[in-house]
Simulated scan of single mutants.
Amino acid sequence: MLIGDERLDHLLAEDLRIIQSPSVFSFSLDAVLLARFSYIPYQKGGRIIDLCSGNGIIPLLISSRTKVPIIGVEIQERLADMASRSIAYNSLADQIEILQQDLREVVPILGKGKNGFVICNPPYFAMDSTHVKNENEHLRIARHEVHCTLRDTIQVAADLLKQGGKASFVHRPERLLEIIDIMREYGLEPKRIQFVHPRIEREANTILIEGTKGGKPGVKYLPPIITQTADGEYTAQVRELLYGKE
Score class of each variant (00 low, 15 high):
T229V: 04
E203S: 15
T229C: 02
F195V: 10
D231M: 11
P224S: 10
I226A: 04
A236R: 07
I207S: 09
I207L: 14
R239Y: 08
N205V: 09
D231H: 11
P217S: 00
R199V: 10
G214R: 02
T206D: 09
T229H: 03
P198E: 09
I226K: 00
E233T: 06
E201V: 14
K213H: 01
I207R: 00
G218Y: 05
A204V: 09
Y234Q: 00
Y234S: 04
Q194N: 12
A230T: 05
K220D: 14
P224G: 05
L208D: 00
Y221H: 12
I209L: 13
A236Y: 10
V196Q: 10
L208S: 00
V219E: 01
G215P: 02
V238P: 00
P223R: 10
T212I: 14
E201L: 15
K213A: 03
N205P: 13
Q228G: 07
L222W: 02
N205R: 11
G218A: 04
Y221T: 12
P198M: 09
I207T: 04
L208H: 01
E203C: 14
L222T: 06
I207C: 10
R202Y: 14
E233C: 05
P223T: 06
T212D: 07
K216H: 08
K220L: 15
A230S: 15
E210M: 11
Y221K: 11
L222I: 08
D231Y: 11
Y221C: 14
I209C: 06
Q228V: 01
T206L: 15
